[in-house]
């Protein structure tokens, strides 16, 4: 068994290194995009249109039918994806954790409300909710983030509620209550630190998931404004030129795959190290 465990732990650290490296490279590229490509993502150069990738240093990944630099656009698209991924998860965590704490600690009406919402969500796949929501409010960057928060807070609320239900019967909480510690203090100082592990795991996996969802929505024309360079939008454009310019469709998709893979590797590694019982496993 000893060799098995060491091999397993080596594997997990490889998972961590790969995930962290991918995520870091992508974050760095996005942060430095303005330095690397000053005003490059939207610059039209009709003379250089449909340049093949790997043929010239000026356009390493080629150009699209308007002569725009594919590499610059892919990196600019990363800005949108990371922005949506992180802000939507932060929003969902704040609201979901709060609701989960209230539902689990006070039970009763709040608890019922949260659980019925969870039932509703199980029955309504994200994409249907998205179609309804976007048909009403219209597609935009802000609306995409709001949609993701609305559709995901329940996940956090459920995980937190579950943990609170078991924690609230434990001695340290009971004794805190017995000596008259205020409710909000029990919730934020005693309960919250004890259930943060599964929440962090869920967060990492959901940033990845939300990047996927945002790109699908934008691909379908329901997400981010098509004039802003984004991965989903580039893929929607590229579909028209699949016969003549494969690279316009290949590289943005590859960017999504690598970003999401990096975050999933990190999330998987975190789950194994923080949450060995697998409460958050999908």
């Amino acid at each position: 068994m000893a060799t098995n465990t060491s091999r397993l732990s080596r594997f997990y650290s490889l998972e961590f290194i790969l995930g962290a490296a991918l995520t870091l490279i992508i974050c760095l590229a996005v942060l430095l995009s303005d330095v690397l490509f000053p005003g490059g993502a939207d610059k039209i150069n009709l003379i250089a249109r449909l340049t093949k990738p790997f043929t010239t240093l000026a356009y390493p990944l080629g150009t699209d039918p308007l002569g725009r630099d594919v590499l610059a656009r892919v990196i600019a698209g990363g800005k949108i994806s990371l922005l949506v991924g992180f802000t939507s998860v932060i929003g969902a965590v704040i609201f979901g954790v709060l609701m989960g704490l209230i539902a689990g600690y006070y039970r009763g009406f709040w608890d019922m409300l949260v659980m019925r919402f969870a039932d509703l969500q199980l029955a309504m796949p994200f994409i249907l909710l998205a179609i309804t929501f976007i048909a009403i409010v219209g597609g935009s960057l802000t609306n995409t983030i709001i949609l993701l928060i609305v559709s995901q807070w329940v996940q956090y609320a459920r995980v937190v509620r579950g943990s609170v239900l078991t924690l609230r019967e434990r001695e340290f909480i009971l004794s805190a209550r017995a000596i008259g510690v205020k409710d909000w203090r029990i919730i934020f100082q005693h309960l919250l630190p004890n259930l943060i592990g599964p929440v962090i795991v869920l967060m990492t996996l959901n940033v990845a998931n939300n990047i996927l969802l945002e790109s699908s929505l934008t691909f379908l024309g329901l997400g981010v404004d098509p004039t802003i360079p984004s991965w989903g939008g580039m893929l929607a454009d590229g579909r028209t030129y699949l016969q003549t310019a494969w690279w316009v469709s290949v590289f943005p998709g590859l960017a999504i795959l690598l970003t999401v893979l990096g975050l999933n590797l990190l999330g998987d590694w975190l789950r194994d190290s923080l949450d060995p019982t697998g409460r958050t496993s999908r």
Partner: peptide, 12 residues
């Protein structure tokens, strides 16, 4: 597989 956007896999 979990990281693949389904619509991109389809396109490829």
């Amino acid at each position: 597989g979990l990281s693949f956007p389904n619509f991109w896999l389809a396109t490829m």
